[in-house]
Amino acid sequence: MKKLSARRRHPLAAVVVLLLALAATGGLYAAFAPADKAQADETAQSLAIEEGKKLYTVGCASCHGTGGQGTSDGPSLIGVGSAAVDFQVGTGRMPAQQPGAQVPKKKNIYSQAEIDQLAAYISSLGPGPVTPTEKQYNPEGADIARGGDLFRTNCAQCHNFTGEGGALTHGKYAPNLEGVSPKHIYEAMQTGPQNMPSFPDTTMPEQEKRDIIAYIQTVNSGEAETPGGLSLGGLGPVSEGLFAWVFGLGALIATAIWVAAHTAKAKKS
């Protein structure tokens, strides 16, 4: 040990220690690190990612960047998850047609298989909310009344009592929920698209999301019952007032004119 301690102040001592330390960490890493799986993986998952990347390059990269990192025209997609892709592309919102206050819903031009491939690529960029399975969003057997209560507490501020939609600032809006599929409603709650806040499972468990979906389907869908007759858009007093003026008072004034025109006349004879 004497020899070693005598040379401890040698100009090269520090370099030797550094080399030893590097060799030790490198050796330990090589010994314990998991085996590299990336090479030559031909699974279905990687094929989907590969195909998704191609679709992405054609349809999305101009705004979201070549690697999903985002540009001044579109946000980063790293960590948005497959649920966001399934919602945005599945409802036709993405790819967007033009910039504006809000990207509207439009006709979807991708097949479900292509959407899944895009979703696989995006989720390969970073972990995020996963596309729900049917078991998660199927509203069958859910508690409608509880869903109504949850809807009025969390959703009605923007989407109106029964999800007819409403205005937000500067031309933005909360869309009408009629005809939106349960899967897409679920995904919207999960991911919070555009101006919507997200309701992850930690604040709103799966069961509650199902209850809300069941409520929307009961009050605002093609099969929704309107016991009182025409619903007049479900917009409340504004459309009711307009109806009362145009059809109510309009009909009554027409009646008044008719009555006044049929007056008793002296007999001509």
């Binding site: 009592f161 009050v219 016991p227 025409l230 619903s231 479900g234 009711e240 009362a244 009909a251």
Partner: peptide, 14 residues
Amino acid sequence: ISAIASINPIWALG
């Protein structure tokens, strides 16, 4: 009018 068009459907409002 009342038989045709619904008004103030309070059941939908909560």
